[in-house]
């Protein structure tokens, strides 16, 4: 029967396909590793003795990343908030005030121009623009430049600080500023996605502005914001590798590079460094992907920059 033959054929093709896929994948990877290993040699003893040192260096990376991440979150949240708050257009503010003024000819005495409101509007607007400028600069310039900039500042103002500490502070400073900029994007999108209409609805059932924020907007925004924030952490971990330009802090990349040059075990160093990064980043990314897919609401989400920025 045509149907049975058809399904049978399809199943056979699938099995063949899967086997071929495994062969090709493993084969290609093995071939590549082999070619590289031949030239440089593969010293297993080196790997088994020094992997602990690599892990310690990885610890430093994680430490730097985590510190910068949470400081950056503070900055990011504040900036994100500032950039997401919607201001009434200036024209409307004046219009509303005009009507109040005209209607109050018989009652209180508001001034002719809503000076206070305009000033407040101006302040809000410029705070927002400055925040925008900050984020634009962070996103528009390489992290390398940001790190060097921070490092130059620290060296200039604290020339007698211990070299490693200088590097450490410079790195954390730059990474904090950097992740702060990117996280502000995440928070801004999260807050403004939820904001529309929800504040009115919350006030309508009697919540104050703060109450609405706490009980309605923030819980929803939190849910939206967690996957991209997790990705941002991973991205920051990868970005922390750029501290190699400072040289004094022994995070994973600096350590791996140094080892490669000192011991000439280039391939092994590469394998260890790459392996450790992959071990951390890939599982976390996969988990986040799965969570995002499960809880995705079509049309609702936070735009995410590619996490590894330089």
């Amino acid at each position: 029967m045509a149907r049975a033959r058809n399904t049978q054929n399809r199943r056979r093709l699938l099995v063949f396909d899967t086997i071929a896929a495994i062969v090709v994948t493993i084969g290609a990877v093995a071939f590549l590793l082999d070619t590289l290993a031949i030239r440089w040699g593969l010293n297993e003893e080196y790997i088994s003795t020094s992997y602990v040192d690599y892990l310690k260096a990885a610890q430093v990376s994680l430490y730097v990343t985590t510190v910068s991440y949470f400081f950056g979150m503070g900055i990011g949240f504040v900036l994100g908030w500032a950039r997401s708050v919607r201001t009434m257009p200036l024209a409307k503010v004046i219009e509303v005030h005009r009507r109040a003024f005209a209607a109050a000819a018989d009652g209180g005495r508001p001034r002719r121009w809503p000076v206070g409101a305009i000033l407040l509007y101006g302040v809000k607007y410029y705070v927002k623009r400055i925040a925008d400028a900050y984020v634009a600069i962070i996103r528009g310039t390489p992290l390398f430049v940001q790190i060097i900039f921070a490092w130059s500042a620290i060296i200039t103002y604290y020339p007698r600080m211990d070299l490693t500490l200088q590097g450490l502070f410079a790195g954390i400073l730059a990474l904090t500023a950097n992740t702060g900029g990117y996280q502000s994007e995440i928070f801004r999108a999260g807050i403004s996605t939820v904001h529309s209409g929800q504040v009115e609805a919350a006030r309508a059932i009697g919540l104050t502005r703060w109450g609405a924020m706490r009980n309605v907007i923030l819980p929803q925004a939190l849910r939206l914001v967690i996957p991209p924030l997790t990705n941002e952490y991973i991205g920051l971990l990868k970005a922390s590798s750029l501290m190699v330009v400072v040289g004094a802090v022994t995070e994973l990349t600096t350590f791996g590079r140094r080892e490669a040059f000192i011991s000439f075990h280039v391939f092994e160093a590469f394998a260890l460094v790459t392996g450790i990064y992959l071990l951390i980043t890939v599982p976390v990314s996969k988990v986040v992907e799965r969570i995002e897919r499960r809880y995705r609401v079509p049309g609702l989400g936070v735009q995410q920059d590619r996490a590894a920025r330089v």
Binding site: K238, R257, A260, V266, F267, Y277
Partner: peptide, 20 residues
Amino acid sequence: FRGVPPIIIVIFASLLGPSL
């Protein structure tokens, strides 16, 4: 390539790449 920091890729490509 998404899991490895680009600087690692740069450093080790310059070292290991020529062997290919």
